[in-house]
Structures are given as C-alpha cells and as structure tokens.
C-alpha cells in the first residue's frame, strides 16, 4: 500500500465505519431513500468540490466558488424573471460567464505570479458584489421547467429517489476522475502540484494549464449554482457563504493532500458523502444541535491533516532507512 492510496483507503474506511455506526443506531439509515437524499442534498457541494479537487491537486486554492454559486443563483433568477429566456439558454450563458471568470483568475495567477489565495480572494468579493448588483433581495424562481427538473428522478429499489441533480453530481465526479487521472491535462495538474519548476522543466505549459484549472473550477462552480438553484428554487445573494471552505474540507477529508500533487477525485465524493452523513445522523437523532456537524467535520479534518503528516514522516523515515 503506497502513501498515495492510503489516505483514500482511510477515507473509505472511515465512511463505511461511520455508516455502520449510524446503521447500528438507526437501522432505517441503510435504505436507498437515505442514500438518494444524501446524493441530492449534497449535489451542489459534490460538484463544486470536484472543481476544487483539481485546483488543490495543482497546488492551488479557489476561494471564489461560494460567491460564484450565489452569483449563479441570482443571475439565473433575475434572468428568468426579467428576460423570458429559456432556462437552458440562461444556464449556457451562466456557465460561459463563470468559466471565463475562472479562466481570468487563472490568467492573473500565472501572469502576475500571484498566490492563488489572494487572486481568488479578490474573485470571491467580486462575485459576491456582482450578485448584489443584480439583486439585493431573495428572488424566487417560478418556472415550470424548474419544477420538471426538480421532480425528475429515477426510482431506485426501496423507493429511494435518485434525482436528476444527484445524477449530475455523480456524472461530474466521473468526469473529474477521467480528467484528473486519465488525460494529459490531468497529468499536468499533478505535475504542477509536484513542483512548478520541475513541471516547467518537464515541458508543462504552465500558463495554459493554470488557466484551464481555474476555468474548470469556475465551470464547476457555475454548474453547482444551477444545481443549487434547482434544489432551492430560489436565489439569495448572501447564500453559500463559506461553501468554498466546505468544499476544501471535503477535498481534504477525501484524502487529497492540501499542498497538491496527490489525491483522488473519487475520494472527494466520499468526503462529501461523509460530511452529508454526519448531517443526516444529526437529523435522525433529532436532539443534537446542528453545530455538531461542524465539530465532527473539524475533528475529521484534523485527523486527516495528522494522517497526511504522519504518512509523510513515515515515508521519509522509510526512505532514510532504505538509503
């Protein structure tokens, strides 16, 4: 078992153990209904976390995604209210905007050689401000097509609903897995995470790759915004504050190393589901404060950071022993 796969395996084991604990206490939790809800409720987070995984694998960070999701919701609601365009056209326009927004941040990061933290922090405020400019208030979405999207589902055995947005999330994860692990672009992302200088020496087009990475994250944030607006059927410019941090937490709990260069997109899905599972447990329990979610997530994060550090140490010691 290599240091590369261990965090992923740890993630999966922790998820299964957590599920087992939940099941022992509330047998009803092992049903396709709960699983279907888990996917639906966390669809927006899963989608944006896939983009975040690619960014973090490259050694970067994207703090703008929460604001971009909020902007997306407001943009869709306002466009549907004021223009009469078909939702699909609005979605296409939105994805073009958020992708271009991400690409611009990637370009700035590369050209100015600025830390992604600062550039995407600026992006975070910009997107939040842009959402406010469109509307200060919550805008409901009243659109028959939306009802269709919201109610589209596949009925799993056991009456569980695999909703459309849950499927979109699973497809996003699958797409992210292919892109990260099976394409030249993905290898370049890992190369950047391993070391920019070395990557450049090996022939990575650093500028192009950086732009594509943040464009991908912007696209995923836009898609997440669409899914979230379907999920809530409304929009609010102040929504989703801190979602970027939830996404980062999901990526890290999913076993991706925060400094980049190692991790799996599939792990991020497990990370998202683990976080969702904690929430579901609290709902089932009924008496626990929802703040316990935060506490458990905090502890899980700490655990994974310690695990990564420990693995690194072990790796160094093993190599020193071999030398």
């Amino acid at each position: 078992m290599s240091a590369r796969t261990l965090p992923l395996i740890a993630t999966i084991v922790i998820f299964l153990l957590a599920y087992l604990v939940c099941y022992l206490q509330f047998p009803a939790m092992l049903s396709t209904r709960v699983i279907g809800n888990l996917l639906t409720d966390n669809a927006y987070l899963g989608i944006v976390a896939v983009g975040m995984t690619i960014v973090i694998l490259s050694g970067g960070i994207d703090l703008s995604v929460g604001s971009v999701i909020a902007f997306a919701g407001v943009f869709i609601a306002v466009m549907l209210r004021d223009t009469g365009l078909h939702p699909v056209a609005v979605f296409a326009a939105l994805l073009a905007i958020t992708t271009a927004f991400g690409a611009a941040m990637g370009g700035l990061i590369h050209v100015l050689a600025m830390p992604p933290f600062i550039v995407t922090l600026a992006g975070m405020f910009l997107a939040r401000g842009a959402g406010y400019m469109l509307s200060v208030d919550s805008v409901p979405i009243d659109e028959p097509f939306y009802d269709f999207l919201k109610d589209a589902y596949y009925l799993m055995p056991g009456k569980g609903r695999l909703t459309l947005i849950g499927i979109v999330m699973l497809l996003s994860v699958a797409a992210g897995m292919v892109i990260a692990h099976r394409t030249r672009f993905g290898t370049s992302v890992f190369a950047l995470g391993g070391g920019v200088q070395t990557a450049r020496l090996m022939g990575v087009n650093v500028g192009r790759t950086t732009v594509l990475i943040y464009a991908f994250s912007g696209f995923m944030a836009g898609l997440s915004g669409i899914v979230f607006s379907i999920y809530t059927a409304s929009s609010y410019p102040l929504a989703m504050v801190g979602t970027e941090l939830n996404a980062i937490a999901a990526v890290v709990i999913g076993g991706t190393i925060l400094t980049g260069g190692a991790g799996y997109v599939f792990g991020t899905l497990i990370g998202v589901l683990t976080m969702g599972l904690i929430q579901t447990y609290i709902v089932f329990d009924g008496s626990l404060s929802s703040w316990w979610t935060k506490i458990v997530i905090g502890m899980l994060l700490l655990l994974f950071i310690l695990l990564q550090k420990g693995l690194l140490r072990l790796d160094i010691r093993r190599r020193a022993g071999a030398a």
Partner: peptide
C-alpha cells in the same frame, strides 16, 4: 532529480508524449 516524485515512473518517463486515444491516456 528533476522529475516528479508524486507521479508514477511511467508518467514521468512518458510525460508530454503519453499515448492518447480519444483524449484519454492509454494506461
């Protein structure tokens, strides 16, 4: 060493010239 320790030996050796089919690297 100017290679990337976080990639596999094969990825390091073939980097930039990976065999690609339909945009996907043939493992």
């Amino acid at each position: 060493v100017n290679l990337l320790p976080n990639l596999t030996v094969a990825e390091n050796l073939t980097f930039g010239r990976q065999p690609v089919r339909f945009g996907m690297i043939g493992q």
